[in-house]
Design a protein around this nucleic acid. Structure first.
Lengths: 214, 214
DNA sequence: CACTAATAACCAGCCAGTCAGTTATTAGAC
DNA sequence: GTCTAATAACTGACTGGCTGGTTATTAGTG
């Protein structure tokens, strides 16, 4: 038996927005923007539909908040990974990729990635923000690191941007797989294992002096 | 002056379904399932909304037809690529990847991929069909080919399924990039170049005897 | 008692799906 | 050939239900 005298609602102005955004993330990731119903979000946040409009003006604003909330921590992680001392390129990379794969498995980036992909045409500004603020800087930083390693003679020649894409693509695919195919019975992909094996493969593929990788 | 006696419409029963599916592919890829309006599909197919219901019972049926139409040609291509004589593993792979990247740039798989990812939760049966009929067989075939090459000692040890994912992931990411970020001003990715450079990288990363790749 | 977070009933607009009517095409009669 | 009847493809106005957004009211707070 639940206590009868539970208040019908509590006043927790400060906590509401985050709770709503968290609930919205789940629902948007599940249904996509258009098919997500405000009432579902409200219900999952333990709140009435009207209450949402005390904190957000429109459905799009909620969507924006969800995506923006997903940008900050990721960007931070990439920044941290690339700010590390650039002594050993191979180890730097291994560390970065490990951190990335850990974050990707632990957090809800997956849902956000799916949202951004799925709604990119309906919300170009969002895809653009996600790209300009996160994807492009991160890819650029990696491209730069690879290019200078090439200049030092550590890496083989080749388009550094494409090398960067070769490096991170499998993790992205792992996330998409988890969001798309695992729920319908596909064999899951172990993202950390994939990341680890792939970095080694990648390093053997681009390092100049054979046998240098530990 | 246009002739006044232009017929208001033509009767072309046989062609209609394909035209509708083609139009639907465009609209679904642009807006996603829920946000796509039947009238938009009808208009783009040069037909009235009512005419659609002469050929499809529901909106979902159209969606199904679009996805199913996207399966057949892809499957065929993968089948053909893997049915080739398994003489030189490296060359086989290069050929397969080249064919894949060509197909991916030429056709509308991109839009379908986006649809399947975006609507996977709303249409689990579709994600499942796509996985069971195309993704899983293809991945399985590659995994098998890699495993037997390992058994022959041509390739390094390691999880063959993860190696397969490492191989194809960049192309998938290329397609997603084209659908998601290029339209909002991101630098495009040249998928054939990416594919070519990546296969070489991959081969250097997994081939056993160094320097064997041409 | 004054004030505000939160509710729930409500409204307006949109869109999938329907159907009665319209236009093209075909078949048959002469 | 041409006229006509029958049929099949197609149209577009309509509707029923759904959902984003609003508001009058209630419940908690100090």
């Amino acid at each position: 038996m639940l206590p009868m005298n539970q208040p019908k609602f509590k006043r927790r102005k400060a906590d509401r927005p985050d709770e709503i955004v968290a609930a919205a993330l789940e629902v948007f990731a599940e249904k996509g923007f258009a098919a997500a119903r405000l009432e579902d979000i409200a219900a999952r946040a333990g709140v009435s539909k009207g209450a949402i409009y005390l904190y957000f003006a429109t459905k799009q604003d909620i969507f924006r908040a969800v995506v923006e909330q997903g940008v900050a921590p990721n960007l931070e992680l990439v920044r941290a990974g690339l700010a590390a001392p650039t002594e050993n390129f191979a180890d730097l990379l291994r560390g970065l990729v490990k951190a990335l794969s850990g974050m990707v498995t632990a957090t809800s980036v997956g849902g956000i990635v799916k949202m951004v992909i799925g709604e990119s045409r309906n919300f170009p500004e969002l895809a653009q923000a996600w790209h300009d603020q996160l994807v492009h800087p991160a890819l650029d930083a990696m491209t730069g690191a690879i290019a200078s390693a090439q200049a030092r003679g550590e890496l083989r020649p080749g388009d550094p941007r494409l090398y960067a894409i070769s490096l991170i693509a499998p993790m992205l695919v792992g996330v998409i797989w988890r969001e798309t195919f695992t729920p319908v019975g596909a064999d899951p992909i172990d993202i950390p294992s994939l990341a680890e094996q792939h970095v080694d493969l990648w390093l053997r593929g681009v390092l100049n002096q054979t046998g240098a990788a530990a």
